[in-house]
Write a protein that binds this DNA or RNA. Structure first.
Lengths: 165, 165
DNA sequence: CCAGGTTAGTTGCAATTGCAACTATAATCC
DNA sequence: GGATTATAGTTGCAATTGCAACTAACCTGG
């Protein structure tokens, strides 16, 4: 009599190879890419990745609060707080208090912060371009789109194995 | 007379938005997915991600050395060493010394280690399946293939901004 | 107008990680 | 075959991170 599922006779679970496991592959690629960039930022600008993210956001949206920056960078508020204090010490970010709500800070890049941004953007773009040079234009937009959908889905899923209410 | 490049008159660099920057997007997705899984492994099995990786590799390839495990998991040897020592303490991995080279260890899962593997695999697969449920079968294989190519390329590239010899 | 609750941001502490130095074993090459 | 170099793995220390507790400011209802 046949088993219900194609598992082996001894009840073994089908093998799982890390090389084909999506979470693993994402993690490896993301680490490779991030450390390549982190190395470059650190060597040339004494900048960490969290700091670079803060700068990138403030360059586009000056005057945000720390909480708003956290939201846009997907960092937690502690990471933002520390990144900002480092950047402030380095004279790259200016922090004021909001006139109407003195808990909230108003963050902007200083001239030096802007200069760092202008220097890094071409580097960051060049790296991205070399990486994406692997793909044809249509593959790129395909990849981009799929990545976005997976991101959205991963947000909805929450913790693994929680068949959530 | 037109400028050579479409940069703004004041020499500004074209804006870079984090949301469209591939390294950032990879990092966010990878973090979301990894912490969902890490939470589940920790809660249910008191297992870290490095430990899970070691188990996954040893389940498929018993008898590897620590260095070989490091290679296959893309972890560094220190991380493997610590993961293995945790697993050994927990009675999930057995470490022997190779007869012909007493520097090298020979790692295998104990029965308990195998049991953990058999319990986790379905969980891991279920999560992956729910995540990939977002994509059609052909999109999945497309994504998989593109991911692989980007991984290979990222290895070749090395540190950003190093126009390497 | 003040008591209780909420929000913004910081700080302290514990756990994780990464790198370099170290130990022990093996291989190489005069 | 003994000194030199290389490899496997561990350990110690410093830097990073994450979480919880904390401070300060604001808001709301009675």
């Amino acid at each position: 009599m046949p088993a219900k599922k194609p598992s082996t006779p001894s009840g073994e679970v089908p093998a799982l190879d890390l090389e084909h496991f999506l979470p693993y592959r994402l993690s490896v690629l993301s680490n490779t890419v991030s450390s390549a960039l982190a190395g470059a930022y650190a060597r040339r600008f004494a900048l960490t990745i969290p700091q670079w993210r803060v700068i990138a956001v403030l360059a586009r949206s000056p005057g945000l609060s720390a909480a708003a920056v956290a939201e846009r960078t997907a960092m937690d508020k502690v990471a933002v707080s520390r990144a900002v204090s480092g950047l402030t010490r380095a004279g790259r970010v200016r922090r004021l208090l909001a006139a109407n709500d003195r808990r909230r800070s108003v963050l902007t890049l200083t001239v030096r912060g802007q200069a760092v941004y202008r220097q890094i953007v071409p580097l960051a773009r060049a790296y991205e371009r070399r990486l994406l040079g692997e793909l044809s234009p249509s593959e790129r937009s395909q990849f981009d789109q799929l990545l976005g959908r997976l991101q959205k889905r991963s947000w909805l899923l929450g913790p693994a194995g929680d068949s959530r209410v």
